[in-house]
Write a protein that binds this DNA or RNA. Structure first.
Lengths: 333, 333
DNA sequence: CTGTTAGCGCCTTCAG
DNA sequence: CTGAAGGCGCTAACAG
C-alpha cells in the first residue's frame, strides 16, 4: 500500500543502495541518476518508513514525558513549552499520565523504553533505590523535574525551599504572625516521592522558626478543609493561610467565600505557581511566580542535550519571586 | 546492550523460531523447552524490541492526537480521558499541538503517518478538499472532533447549533431582549476550519430571529473588548453577552469588573464549556455543560474501533445542557 | 559511480 | 516438536 525504496529502485532500474544514496543525498552518485530517482520518489510521494529507519539507526527522534496529570494548569503550560521545543528540534512526544500511581508509572516507563524513546522527561512518583537503578540500567537519558530522585539524574525546577522562605518572609513583612501551611501532598510521606512538598515544608518550618513571635501550623491531609475549619480563628486578621499550590489556594478561597470569611480582611491567603487562570480570580491571589514556560523549554533542551551526550548541569533552578495580589494586606500597628 | 531473542536462542541451544514460539506462547513446542526459554528470558530481563515487532506486524499500538493547544482547559480534560482510555486498550499516545497553524498541522500529521500510528484523533484547523483527500489517501483511521471535515470522517462532539439555541432560549426566558454574541474565532472565516464556531453562530442567529422583539449583535474580531465597549449599553439590564466559550467569558468578566459594571445587575453574561475552573469564579458563570470526559473516552473508543475495522457511527453527539449560574438574572416585568 | 551483501530484531511459513 | 529460510524497509560497508 505504501511506496518503498525497493519499488523506486525497480522503477529506476537501479538498486536500493543507489536509491538510498540519492534520497539521503550522500556522495558517490551520478547527478543524473540522482535527479531521476528524486523525481520518481517525488512523483510517487515516497516517504521513508520511520520505524525501519529507527530500527537500523538506533534512535527514534521521540521523547516521552511522564506527568501526574494535566489538570493542574502548571503542567499543561509546561507541556506546551516542552512540546514546542521538542518539535523545533525534530522530536515528537509521547505524553503519559501516571495519575501519581507508582505501578502505572513503572509500567509506562517500561512501555516508553520498549518503544525506544530517545529520552524521558520524568516527574517521578516513585523514589526508591530499586526504581532508580532500574532507570539507570535502561541506559536511556532521563531528566527529572518537579520531584527529585537521589541518583545522578539531571533536575530542573525552582528552589522550592527558598521560595517558601520568601513567602513566609513576605507574610511576616506584612505583619502576619500566624501562618497555617496547607500542603496535602505531605500526607503521602513515606509512600511516594514528595521531594518538592518536603522541600517547601522544610522551608516553611525553618523560616517560621527564625521569626521570634511567629506561630504556625501545618495541614497535611486529604480533608484539609475540615482541619482548616478547626484551626482557623476568624478573628485573627494576622493569620494567613499559605498553600503549597494555587489549586489548593483556590479551593480554600472558595470555601472561605462560602463561609463569608473575607480575604484579606479576616484572613490572609497565599498560593504558589501563579497559574494563568489566577488572572480571573478575585481577590487577586498573592502567589509565587516562576517562568514555567522556561522550565518546559529548558527541560526539552536538557533532555535533548543529554541525548546528544553533551554535558548538562545536575541541577537547573529557575528564578522565582513573590507576586503580591490582594489576598494579603499590610498590618500597621 | 539490550538482550535479543537471538541471544536467548544461543543460550538455550535452540533457534530463534523456537524462542519465538515460547515467548508468544504458540503451539508446537515441547513444554520443557518452553519452560527453559521462559526462565532464561525472565532472568535476562528480555523485552521484545517494539519497533522490530511493529515493523513486521504492521501496527504500532500508537495513537496520535492533534489539538490546537492545551491552554483551554476543555482540551486538557479531554486529553486526560482520551489518554486513560487509550492506555486501557493498550495504546500509547503522541500529543501534538498545531497551535491552529495549518502548515504545522499538516507537517505533524505527516510525521505521525511516517511513524505509522494506528490512528489519529484530529481537531482540524485545515478544511480544504486537498487536505481531506490527503487524509483519505493515508488510509489511516481518523476520527475528528471539535471541528468537522466534509469527508467521511467519523465525528464526535456536541450539537453546537442546538446548544446555542438553548442558550438564547434560556436568556430569553429570563427576560433578556438583547444579546451580544461574542465569538472571535469567527474572524477566521475563509481562512481556517471554523465549523463549530459557524454552527454556534448559525444557532445564535436563527434562535434570535425566532424571538420577536430580540435585538442582537455579533462580535467576531480579535479586539473583541474594544468592540464590546462600543456596543455595550451600561443601562440596559436586559442585555446579555453570550460567549462562544468560557475562556472569552472569563476575559469579558474581568474586563467588566475592571469597569465596575456589575454582573448580572447591569449586564448578563454566559459562557460555554463549563470548564472545571469555573467553580472558582464569582459570580458563578451561566454556561453550557457537556461531559467532555465522555467525549475523550468515546473519541479513543471510536478511533480504536475504526482501527479494528469495526463500524462506527459517522456522528456521535454528546448531550449538553445549560447550567444556570449567577451571571444572568430573571427580569420580572 | 553502482551493485552486492549483510544486518537492525522480530515473525512466519515450510520442511524435516 | 524444531530448524532453516525469507522478509518487514532501510542503512552501510565493501567490492567492482
Amino acid at each position: 500500500m505504501n511506496i518503498t525504496s525497493k519499488q523506486i529502485a525497480e522503477l529506476c532500474g537501479v538498486t536500493r543502495g543507489t536509491v538510498d544514496r540519492a534520497l539521503n543525498n550522500r556522495p558517490g552518485i551520478h547527478p543524473e541518476t540522482r535527479e531521476k530517482i528524486m523525481r520518481v520518489a517525488e512523483e510517487l510521494g515516497y516517504r521513508p518508513h520511520f520505524l525501519a529507519q529507527s530500527l537500523v539507526k538506533g534512535h527514534t527522534k521521540t521523547l516521552g514525558i511522564v506527568l501526574f496529570d494535566i489538570h493542574n494548569q502548571i503542567f499543561s503550560q509546561l507541556f506546551h513549552a516542552f512540546e514546542a521545543e521538542a518539535r523545533k528540534r525534530g522530536y515528537i512526544v509521547y505524553l503519559v499520565l501516571s495519575n501519581r500511581d507508582k505501578e502505572l508509572e513503572l509500567e509506562y516507563i517500561n512501555n516508553l523504553l520498549d518503544r525506544r524513546v530517545d529520552g524521558i522527561a520524568l516527574l517521578p512518583a516513585n523514589d526508591n533505590k530499586k526504581f532508580e537503578s532500574f532507570l539507570l540500567r535502561s541506559r536511556t537519558p532521563i531528566v527529572t523535574f518537579g520531584n527529585r530522585l537521589s541518583g545522578p539524574f539531571p533536575y530542573i525546577w525552582i528552589n522550592d525551599k527558598q521560595a517558601i522562605c520568601d513567602s513566609v518572609a513576605f507574610l511576616a513583612s506584612q505583619g502576619y504572625r500566624r501562618i497555617i501551611y496547607l500542603s496535602p501532598p505531605l500526607m503521602r510521606k513515606g509512600k511516594e516521592n514528595i521531594y518538592v512538598p518536603e522541600q517547601r515544608y522544610q522551608g516553611f518550618v525553618s523560616a517560621c522558626a527564625d521569626i521570634p513571635d511567629m506561630r504556625f501550623d501545618v495541614i497535611a491531609q486529604k480533608q484539609y478543609l475540615t482541619e482548616l475549619e478547626s484551626l482557623l480563628d476568624h478573628n485573627d486578621s494576622k493569620c494567613a493561610i499559605l498553600c503549597s499550590s494555587d489549586v489548593y489556594a483556590l479551593e480554600v478561597l472558595k470555601w472561605l467565600k462560602a463561609r463569608k470569611i473575607r480575604v484579606p480582611e479576616q484572613v490572609g491567603l497565599m498560593g504558589f505557581d501563579n497559574i494563568d487562570f489566577l488572572t480571573y480570580i478575585n481577590p487577586a491571589l498573592t502567589t509565587v511566580d516562576y517562568n514555567v514556560n522556561e522550565i518546559g523549554t529548558k527541560l526539552a533542551d536538557l533532555l535533548i542535550r543529554r541525548i546528544h551526550n553533551d554535558e548538562v548541569p545536575a541541577e537547573t533552578l529557575i528564578d522565582h519571586h513573590v507576586v503580591q495580589g490582594e489576598s494579603v494586606m499590610l498590618h500597621c500597628d
